[in-house]
């Protein structure tokens, strides 16, 4: 399929590519919504206890992309978040560090400095997050700035308007261009599934992003409701599983937004385990985009180790 090239000009070749790309995406197996929801609910009823729960909590902590994406963010707030990312529970050094801290591009420098040598990555949203409504050049500049500031991961948003109106080539070409702008940084492509209307579209957008070079596909910006859901993540996990089977390349998955409790987090791990498989059960291939879930994970972790229920006053609010 040929869809690279000049995103501003319309060549004959691009038109053919568009038809081919659309045909490919619409040729993917359908998703039956009720069946997918039933499967997700069934997996969510798995009962994870004792030793399995302890392992799951630590794994979940290590997969967290600790996130702050507010207009009111300050350097101080970002530094506090970074401290928490490295030592989520200062009183217990056995708690693993999180995978990454996720901030706006202008906070990347602060985060990189705060996390130097810690092994915690710095992810930055870019490409006119969260709407994606900006000229490509602006998106690319946004991306380059974040990478130049030291971001190791870029979370881009797709142009949902283009995707939904059928201009899949535009989404494809923008993703390819952003991927190029990322250089060595990993690219996470946010599909904003809450705006995609159907699970069929989630599967198509997943394949579109993967074919354009995404290292990760991510559900949501967190600014739109619904954010991550189990059925949506199920479909995306199926997509990365099928994509690897077809191409040999493994792509990661990141549900983001709406994951608040340990119970939620463990449901996602079960989903990964039984859908994409154990190969995805590591921070390299699965992330949880969240912030408040971390304290609940810590609280449940302490309950398991002490045998008594803990309370929110014993964990830091950052």
């Amino acid at each position: 399929m040929r869809v690279f090239g000049d995103a501003w000009g319309v060549s004959t070749e691009t038109l053919i590519g568009a038809a081919e790309l659309r045909a490919f995406l619409h040729g993917l197996p359908g998703v039956d919504q009720v069946g997918a929801e039933e499967r997700a609910a069934r997996l969510a009823s798995r009962s994870i206890k004792t030793s399995a729960k302890a392992e799951a909590i630590d794994l979940a902590i290590s997969m967290v992309d600790l996130t702050t994406l507010e207009g009111a963010d300050t350097a101080g707030k970002v530094r506090a978040l970074c401290a928490k990312a490295v030592h989520p529970d200062p009183s217990d050094p056995s708690v693993p560090k999180v995978a990454a801290v996720c901030v706006y591009p202008d906070m990347v420098e602060t985060a990189v400095a705060a996390l130097a040598g810690s092994g915690v990555g710095v992810a930055s949203v870019a490409t006119a997050f969260p709407s994606g409504r900006a000229p490509l050049e602006a998106k690319l500049a946004d991306t380059r700035a974040a990478v130049a500031a030291g971001a190791s991961e870029i979370d881009m948003v797709i142009d949902r308007g283009a995707f939904l109106s059928g201009d899949v080539v535009k989404v494809f070409e923008e993703t390819v261009a952003v991927k190029q702008a990322c250089g060595d940084a990993h690219l996470k492509v946010i599909l904003e599934t809450g705006e995609l209307a159907t699970l069929d579209n989630v599967r198509r957008a997943s394949w579109l992003a993967m074919r354009a070079g995404a290292d990760f596909i991510k559900t949501s910006t967190g600014k739109i409701s619904p954010a991550a859901t189990l059925p949506v993540t199920l479909v995306m996990l199926e997509a990365v599983r099928d994509y690897r089977a077809a191409t040999g390349r493994q792509v990661g998955v990141k549900p983001a937004g709406g994951i608040r409790t340990t119970k939620d987090a463990i449901k996602y791990l079960v989903l990964v385990n039984e859908t994409a498989g154990p190969d995805w059960l590591s921070p390299a291939w699965f992330r949880l985009g969240a912030s408040s879930v971390l304290n609940d994970l810590l609280m449940q972790r302490r309950k398991l180790s002490t045998g008594v229920y803990s309370g929110p006053d014993y964990f830091t609010l950052d």
């Binding site: 009962s47 994870i48 190969d279």
Partner: peptide
């Protein structure tokens, strides 16, 4: 690769 074994939940 992590092995996620579910402990018995009787």
């Amino acid at each position: 690769m992590t092995v996620f074994e579910y402990a018995p939940a009787p």
